[in-house]
Amino acid sequence: MNTTKEKLIKLLFAAAAFSSLALLAGIIIVLFREALPVFSFVSPLAFLGGESWYPTAEPPEFGVWPLIAASAWVTGIALVICVPLGVGSALYLHELAGPRQRAALKPVIEVLASIPSIIYGFFGMTVMAPFMQEAFGLPIGLCALTAGVILGVMATPTVASIAEDALGYVPRSFREASFALGANRWETLVKVIVPAAGSGISTAVILGMSRAIGETMTVLMVAGGAAVVPSSVFDPVRPMTAAIAAEMGEAAVGGEHYHALFAIALALFLVTFVFNIAAELISRRYRLKLGLAR
């Protein structure tokens, strides 16, 4: 009697738990099914390496290199911003701030993470872009640099909070051992705490990167939108996510453009997937290294 009920409940929860697995499988299947036909009208090399993205021209050209390059540039700029900001704030919060400062700063950083990306985009368009235009004398402020800076700010909370967790995993005994050997706070931080948290901090950076490369709304609004291989950070660009978001609405279902956009999505999915697996592997090795149970 009771056991039947228990079994049923167990089954329900199992279904909930396994549904994400099923969803992931479904997404992967759809991505591949809709993406692979692209190679019937363009070779993989011409698709990934082609420098012209004219999907609606006659005849259309499906070279996604400008989009990949745009994503890489924007993500690279974002990293330059979010790594020092994120790791710096994690170090400050964890090592130097007093309990009162930490109690005030930590929620602020978390709020930064919870702001919808459209607001960042809006801020980028109305404040950041005019500022860039003014500061660097650009014809238009919507460019790779603007998008990268905004993405960097958006990824900072991710990096900060994961890096801070990583620092928190470093056992207190390492710190005590270092102090007991006559090391000061700075030496302890640089020579013991940060190396011990090193792979955890790398995980934070990879996840921040993954966050930046997948972000859509902001880049759609502030990157400028030109599908041209950028030659400077001041060029307007069209990252992969922005291309999909902007063009999917006008691509005929089942058409060549449609499949090409799916292929971009697949590439994006694979990149973030690899990033996340790498982050997981590194953090696992890291916890092992610190002698923590998994």
Binding site: P171, S173, F174, E176, A177, P195, A196, K289, L290, G291
Partner: peptide, 9 residues
Amino acid sequence: FQKPNPFPK
């Protein structure tokens, strides 16, 4: 210390 605490080095 009470628990051996070598650095992960």
